[in-house]
Design a protein around this nucleic acid. Structure first.
Lengths: 346, 346
DNA sequence: CCAACACGATAAACCGCTTTAGTAAAGCGG
DNA sequence: CCGCTTTACTAAAGCGGTTTATCGTGTTGG
């Protein structure tokens, strides 16, 4: 009843285990007759080499791992990850690799890493100094970091977060907004503070804002989900210091902000301009369509996978230049209304 | 420079390999002093058991596989899959499992299956008679089918597709629509025709339509994406036989249909009513918000994972009752206009 | 004082495959 | 007919863990 092994095939075909192995991996080393016979027997018996045994022998598992810093249910609520996987997937399929999603095991990402049988890792949003990344190095598994900080030891695939954020802020400022708020990305892991990405985007926002000589904006942290965006809106200051424009670091949260604003009776963009970040496909269908900063997520995944595969093949590769971001102006932003009425607007 | 093995730790700590193994797996079998020492040495050396070796020995990989019948880039363009993974992920994390995405390898799903080192498989949309599923059986890997046909050999997790579809069609018919069209799901694999799911939904639509004594609707097949939905709209009949309502088997395609209709100058729902299937989160934000059939996708994933894990633990489980679906009426459907000029209601 | 018995640690077999080194037979030129 | 190379196939040694059976040893009970 148990699995049929190479030895079973060998004895059934009257040859050695080696011959069976050769039949699959180096067919040219076998005589034509035996090759046929072995393959035939193997097929009849439904033989499939045990993947773990094969991996142990060849030191290759045919799998690359994706380090998921949080619970799968929260991470996959963000379409960003789907996009990324589309990119990774393309390269994986091209190279006959499977994709292993590695979430924290029993709360510990490090433990999960040790258990994962992969040829390489892709890390999402983790700093190069994160303990998980150090474990990776300790084991000596090739790794590529996405959305991280520059690192001398790992290739890092980034987009121009700072430039994109700056463009977003300039856009709002150009429309006459003076009272702004920022919705910041959540930390990748509980222990951390700002993610590398959040830090860069913040810098971009602030650069534009300071250059315009406008008061420093309030900032709120929100998870990457519509619900979190809604909560973020609630915690924005109201009254006189109410912002007329809000810069959100993710499209999902931006949609939440719009939704909450609308249910609070405000009009977007009439009463509140919102600009997101990512340009997810769905951001074009929202109501109103979201003004946002486009980053090439699929490309990012593709590029990261390509670099990882090269590293797995022994080539040493450096970090590529950050991919460019572009502001996509849709309908969630408009000129600030009655921006300096002598006394309170409303 | 190569990986540190259990033998390295053993000799560094002056004990046998067995002792090191015990230190991790049966700490109670070691004296307190040695236990501490071994763990200390292991930590200093950065030892991590080789996952493949461990898997070979224990016959457990700590991984469950998700059989992806198509390219990752097309499958993950559909938020349905993200939702499902959220459900699967919850259970996986609870049981300390990782999730392996297994797309066709070199075009062959069967080949991919053989290479995957997993303890169990979840199949998406494949018939129980699919060759891939047969390979699974041949190897003897526990498997749970999602969106499949009833099977005596495997647990199947389904929703009430037929009932949901019937409700959707009844909704349109109740609004006075007489000229309908159906947008059918694409085959899961190139070889197949209708998927089990598509067959059931079609039956549901038709049951309602026939009961209403309305002419049989046109049907078009469209992939699960906005772009495919747009193309589907294009290929709908125009002129006198133009449908006033369209039943779409996926929300993504439904959104595409709406979008294409709008860019063609039609108003939704004024000129065309559209009802989708799935109730993806984003379907609530579209313009107009989409009327659709809600299916509990996350629950589906959770349930499937739970059943698989039980099967992996040796318990034999049967198929659960189909999860229920409910029609969610939003704003993409309205009464049919001027349907027969003389006596039109409305 | 000796048999009985936990206790702590180990040697060796095993998991299922790949691969190196090697052997027997066949082919070949001289 | 002999040495030399090919060809076709195999034995056995890993790969890096786990696990079973065993073995000293210091403790006890009778």
């Amino acid at each position: 009843m148990s699995r049929v092994t190479i030895a079973d095939v060998a004895s059934a075909a009257g040859v050695s285990k080696t011959a069976v192995s050769f039949a699959f991996n180096s067919p040219e080393r076998l005589g034509h007759a035996t090759l046929e016979r072995v393959l035939g027997v193997a097929h009849d018996l439904g033989y499939a080499p045990h993947p773990a045994a094969r991996a142990l022998s060849t030191r290759r598992s045919g799998t690359i791992g994706v380090l998921i810093p949080q619970r799968l249910s929260t991470v996959f609520a963000n379409p960003f990850v789907s996009e990324l996987i589309q990119g990774l997937g393309e390269l994986c399929e091209e190279h006959d690799l499977a994709l292993l999603l590695v979430p924290p095991l029993d709360g510990s990402l490090e433990a999960a890493i040790r258990h994962a049988s992969v040829d390489g890792f892709i890390s999402l949003g983790l700093s190069p100094h994160d303990r998980a990344v150090e474990v990776l190095d300790g084991i000596g598994i090739p790794t590529v970091l996405i959305d991280s900080d520059e690192s001398s030891t790992h290739p890092v695939v980034n987009v121009d977060d700072r430039g994109g954020a700056q463009a977003a802020a300039s856009h709002l400022l150009g429309l006459g907004h003076r009272q702004l708020a920022i919705v910041v990305l959540p930390p990748a892991r509980a222990e951390m503070s700002y993610t590398p990405t959040a830090t860069r985007r913040l810098a971009g926002y602030n650069a534009a804002i300071e250059a315009a000589g406008v008061p420093a904006p309030q900032s709120v942290t929100a998870g990457i989900s519509v619900a979190a965006g809604m909560r973020a809106f609630e915690s924005l200051p109201s009254g006189a210091s109410r912002p007329t424009g809000v810069l959100v670091m993710s499209d999902m949260a931006a949609i939440g902000v719009m939704k909450a604003a609308q249910t609070a009776g405000m009009r977007v963009p009439g009463d509140l301009s919102v600009v997101g970040f990512d340009d997810l496909p769905l951001s074009a269908w929202t109501n109103p369509p979201l003004t946002t900063v486009r980053q090439p997520i699929v490309d990012k995944g593709r590029l990261a996978a390509r670099m990882l595969i090269e590293r797995m093949n022994g080539k040493s590769v450096g970090s590529p230049a950050p991919l460019s971001t572009t502001l996509i102006v849709r309908a969630s932003t408009s000129e600030a209304r009655n921006l300096d009425l002598p006394n309170d607007r409303r």
